[in-house]
């Protein structure tokens, strides 16, 4: 387990007040990291509202396909595997980042992005296949909730891919500086968070649907 090291060690003594000299440290990593955690927490609540809605609506199929009929086991298993693996490679990227190695950080980020793209591709494929079979969002309350929950996660993943591409450009140009370090570190929190959300989609949507 990692030892407590804050991403930007340029601060002085710790305590209630971190900022002493300036209103804004130029590369005040810990402030940004806290801010980003707070963003993650609001996202957590957002997803939990979507989960709550899905769980309330999963039985409301209005004569359309039920979860059991809809879910494609190999499909979502591969999606899960890709995303879990990408979370791992993302961890490796931050590992290299901490060692100050820009090139290998970028390397692992590229792998992560490819895995992420694979995930998004599979999901898009799943959605299109379902829709062509008539299981569209308009078919039932269950399907509205399903597409919205899973799709919101998919949008987050796609956004994460776009975002990290911007960061890779900056890493390539500037190397590992306190600022690029902080940016990539924050992105990695985002990516792992999406993995957590997916684990619950996997559990509460797919496995839950199949168990019934």
């Amino acid at each position: 387990m990692s030892v407590a090291v804050h991403p930007n060690p340029s601060h002085g003594p710790q305590g209630a007040a971190v900022e002493t000299e300036h209103g804004h440290e130029h590369d005040n990593g810990s402030l940004y990291v806290l801010g980003f955690w707070l963003f993650i927490i609001q996202d957590l609540i957002l997803f939990s509202c979507l989960f709550a809605t899905y769980l309330v609506m999963q039985g409301r199929t209005a004569g359309g396909p039920t979860p059991k009929e809809l879910f494609d086991v190999p499909g979502f298993s591969w999606e899960t595997f890709l995303l879990l693996t990408s979370s791992f490679t993302c961890g490796l990227a931050t590992f290299q980042l901490r060692r100050g190695k820009a090139a290998s950080t970028i390397g692992w980020l590229v792998v992560t992005v490819l895995l992420g793209l694979g995930f998004v591709g599979l999901e898009a494929n799943e959605f299109v296949t379902n829709a062509l079979e008539g299981a569209t969002m308009q078919r039932s309350g269950f399907l509205s909730a399903f597409y919205t929950l899973v799709g919101t996660h998919g949008c987050h993943v796609s956004l994460g891919i776009g975002w990290v591409i911007l960061l890779m450009i900056q890493l390539a140009r500037r190397g590992v500086t306190p600022v690029t370090f902080r940016k990539v570190f924050i992105w990695s929190i985002y990516w792992h968070f999406l993995d957590i959300v997916w684990v619950f989609i996997y559990t509460a949507v797919y496995l839950n649907g199949l168990a019934r």
Binding site: T53, V56, M57, R60, T61, A62, G64, M137, Q138, R139, S140, G141, F142, L143, S144, A145, T148
Partner: peptide
């Protein structure tokens, strides 16, 4: 969700189609 209902005709909160 209400907006999605209105925009694309989903069934979150409608009376028909399994909405609630």
């Amino acid at each position: 969700l209400l907006f999605i209902d209105r925009l694309v005709g989903a069934h979150f909160f409608t009376l028909t189609g399994g909405g609630d």
